[in-house]
Structure formats: C-alpha cells, structure tokens
C-alpha cells in the first residue's frame, strides 16, 4: 500500500500530467531539446508520460557552436529512443560570419541571431528544418513547414529572474511577445490550452523543479547525461551547457551524480548562479528578461 508520494514522485507526476495535457490539446506540438540536463530530464518525462514513446518531434536549435560532444550525444540518443529529431539553424548568419566568435557582434546580439531568430523561424517553419531519417540516421530537409502551435520548453523557475515569473502554459502572441505583467491565471491542474489563431503557447513542465531535483531525478532514474557535467580529473565541470565561446566550467571535484548532489546540498554553490558560466546573461543586465521577451527559451 502506497500512502505517501515523495517530492520527486510529485514533481514527476505533475510534469507528466502537463506533457499529456499539451499532447491532447495541440495538434502541432514539439519539444525543445537543448541536450542539457534539464531538457534531457524533460525528454525522459515524455517517455514516462507515453510509456516509452515520444509522440511528437524533438527540436534542437543548433548554433553550430555547441560543444561537439553534445551533437554526438543528441544523435545517439535520438537513434536509441527512436526520436523524431529535428534541428534548425541561422544558416545566413553562420555563412556570412555574423556571429560573436567571428567578431561581428556582441554576445547578446549573437544569441539573438543564432538562438532567438533561429528558434522563431524553425518553429514557424519559415526557415529550413532538418529531420533525421529514422532508417538511415541522416538529416534531410523536412517537407513539413507547418508552424508549431505548442512548444514544450524545459525552463525552471529557480534558474533566473524572468523564468520565475512563468506559467506552466504561457501564451506568446504573433510576434512571439510575452506579456509578463498580464498572464492568465492557472489553477487546479487547469491550464491555458485555448488560443487564438496565429498565437502559440509555450509549455513548461519543469517549472517547479530545482537544480538539485534535476540531479536527484537523474540519479533515481539512471538517465544518461553528457560527460561535460562531470569533473574529468582537471577539477572543473560545466554546471550549465551552452555554446563553447560563451560557456565556462566551474571549479569542482564532483565526478558523479551523487557527488554533484552532495556539492549542491553542501551550499558551497548557493551564492553562485547556476548560469554564472553563461556570459550572455551578464550582458543582459543579469536577467534574461530582454532576451526572453523576444522569444528566447
């Protein structure tokens, strides 16, 4: 007889419920997968929700500056889990070298071009989408250009300021704008699943999770993660993964999930932001509110 659910059980069930609600309510639904720990946990929760299957495409915005291990890991899992894997990118900015690493613009501007713009246009279907052919494992241009009306995103409320103001189902208007001051109420497991034509909804199943919850769940479920999160002998590990020109590791001895949990619970990182290794945050006045209002994850 089960008489109590643990904190992780409750988090898991609520997220699964939200993912299933999204699946029932949005015909053109996708899940963003950044290959990081949070969205990988979210992918795992989708497999929980549908008993081992993922009945919607996974979309990755490839900035071409991701640490190469991340792309390999993505494709390997996509094949193993039989995912409907799609990626999109800002091909023009990359071709014309209009990026921060090419010295053309600021980090923020680069984020806008390679992430926000690429994300918006990939979701809208206005730029090319590449879809993995499940037979060959090779990416091909996707013939489907219909816009996604529901987008599942793995942001957590405790990550940074603007994300703490999110709802589980958060509407975005035609211009991708987010009206932080006037958001719909959400209560009793009832979410905003009705939307006017031309708008879309971001769905945030991980909103209630904290960084340490994520690691505990990875531990409990035995979820594979990118090795970059662990100290590989040089006393450093990545706490948050992004593009390599703008992401730096933290000092840490933690080389296993258990050690990361211990490190987080010890409080030694409690005065250091999780995204402290992400340089673009600092340029955006500390919060991501400006980037996010514009459509950033």
């Amino acid at each position: 007889m089960i008489n109590q659910l643990t904190h992780l059980d409750r988090l898991e069930s609520k997220s699964v419920h939200i993912i299933r609600e999204a699946y029932s309510n949005f015909k053109n639904l996708c899940m963003l997968w950044s290959i990081g720990k949070d969205s990988t946990v979210m992918l795992w929760l989708a497999r929980k929700a549908f008993f081992g299957h993922v009945p919607f495409p996974l979309v990755h915005v490839d900035t071409a500056y991701k640490i190469p291990e991340m792309i390999e890991y993505r494709d390997r899992l996509a094949r193993e889990y039989k995912l409907d894997m799609i990626y999109g990118q800002n091909e023009e900015a990359l071709r014309d070298k209009k990026t921060f690493p090419d010295g053309d613009c600021s980090r923020i501007e680069c984020c806008k071009r390679l992430k926000t713009e690429a994300l918006k246009n990939t979701l809208a279907g206005t730029w090319k989408r590449y879809r993995m052919n499940k037979e060959t494992g090779i990416y091909e241009v996707d013939s489907n250009t219909e816009p996604y009306t529901g987008v599942i995103v793995g942001v957590r409320a405790d990550e940074e300021g603007s994300r703490s103001k999110e709802r589980y189902f958060s509407p975005r208007d035609r211009n991708n704008d987010w009206d932080v001051g006037d958001q719909p109420p959400e209560f009793w497991n009832q979410y905003k699943t009705d939307f006017a034509p031309g708008t879309h909804v971001r769905i945030h199943p991980l909103l209630d999770w904290t960084e340490v919850d994520i690691w505990k769940y990875i531990q409990r479920e035995g979820i594979p993660t990118v090795s970059l999160y662990y100290n590989q002998g040089d006393g450093k590990r990545y706490r948050s993964l992004g593009c390599y020109p703008c992401t730096s590791p933290i000092q840490s001895q933690a080389s296993s999930v258990a050690e990361i949990i211990e490190e987080l619970e010890s409080g030694i990182l409690s005065n250091i932001a999780e995204r402290s290794g992400r340089e673009q945050d600092k340029e955006d006045g500390g919060g991501l509110e400006d980037l996010r209002k514009d459509g950033y994850m």
């Binding site: 904190h7 992780l8 390999e72 035995g222 979820i223 090795s227 590989q232």
Partner: peptide, 16 residues
C-alpha cells in the same frame, strides 16, 4: 572518458 555518462539507478535521499 566516454561521451555519455551512464548513471546507475540509485535511491536518493529526499526531504518532505
């Protein structure tokens, strides 16, 4: 060091 860290399933301590 391999690319993917495969973690063994393990119980975790949780507070209420």
């Amino acid at each position: 060091m391999s690319l993917i860290k495969q973690t063994e399933k393990a119980d975790v301590k949780q507070r209420e």
